[in-house]
Design a protein around this nucleic acid. Structure first.
Length: 280
DNA sequence: ATAAACGCCTGACGGC
DNA sequence: TGCCGTCAGGCGTTTA
């Protein structure tokens, strides 16, 4: 499911709270934890995880690439939602004191002392959670944040020409740049009028500038609209109404009217305007 | 160095 | 209705 804008939206909601509950994760102290799908834990056994996280309080919530970063007193909880993950902050206890039922596909639940809980729901079970005192061990592998102003189009051009890979798989490589996934990559390449199979080593300084600008525009607009909702997985976003190519196979290009075409690039459905994005 | 193929999982959808 | 293939917001590993 989620790419940078969706993860950013989820992190902001956890940090600030949102209707109807309006409860922030910040300050919540963990009373207990439940592991409902063992493989959700990336680096610890359920026993180790539960023992270590119990009693810790949430200091802060942020995002790095597609990871949600939950800072605790002593450790960091890193959560990657992969294809179908979602996080729910909710009330855990009814008026009469009974525990409210969990939802289907809940894989990991943190129960707080204030009668709220955080549930990691993940239909496809690809999502992962790490509990570590050294989050950099995992996060240091990531490339730069595309929205970080210190990333200039000159350095982006240098990054691109250091490799000679197909552009789309390179942009989606989280070690190259952190946060782009299938949708926003297609949308950014269209807006920059560059074909996804163009070689990164062939990109000119002007193209690199346009591409970085397009990446930032689609990500910022995605965040502004709370991400994109295209199926049952993620709700609340509105960016799907701004798609120019993704999921529009056969429909007219918004710029030139040519039918949008679908191809497969590194096993992923890829959408281009064959006239605006000439094949290399 | 780069790229393709596959595995991990469940569910929705379209065709027959 | 049921069955089957295909596809889905990701990423790690193995193979070429």
């Amino acid at each position: 499911m989620p790419e940078l804008p969706e993860v950013e939206t989820i992190a902001r909601v956890l940090k600030q709270g949102a209707e109807p509950l309006n409860v922030s994760l910040i300050g919540c102290q963990i009373k207990s934890a439940q592991v409902l799908w063992q493989r959700t834990l990336a680096n610890l056994s359920p026993r180790e995880f539960i023992q270590r996280i119990t009693g810790q309080s949430v200091i802060d919530v942020s995002r790095r690439g597609k990871f949600i970063v939950v800072n605790l007193d002593h450790d960091s909880l890193l959560i990657h939602l992969r294809m179908s993950g979602d996080l729910r902050m909710e009330k855990s206890t009814a008026q009469d004191g009974s525990t409210l039922p969990l939802q289907e596909h809940d894989r990991l639940v943190l129960q707080f002392i204030n009668q709220s809980r955080l549930a990691f729901n993940d239909t496809r079970k690809f999502g992962r959670a790490w509990l570590t005192d050294d989050p950099q061990e995992i996060l240091a592998e990531l490339g730069p944040e595309p929205l970080d102003e210190s990333l200039t189009s000159e350095s982006f051009h240098a990054m691109l020409t250091k490799h000679n890979r197909q552009l789309k798989p390179l942009l989606m490589d989280q070690r190259f740049l952190a946060g782009l996934g299938n949708i926003y990559t297609d949308e950014a390449l269209f807006r920059a009028s560059i074909h996804p199979l163009k070689r990164s080593g062939q990109i000119t300084t002007k193209e690199a500038h346009n591409l970085l600008h397009a990446i930032r525009v689609v990500l910022q607009e995605g965040i502004q609209r709370n991400g994109a909702s295209i199926d049952w997985v993620y709700r609340g976003g509105q960016f799907q109404h701004q798609f120019q190519v993704y999921g529009r196979e056969g429909q007219a290009c918004t710029r030139c009217g040519s039918p949008i075409r679908r191809l497969v690039v590194s096993q992923r459905g890829t959408h281009v305007c064959p006239s605006c994005q000439p094949a290399p």
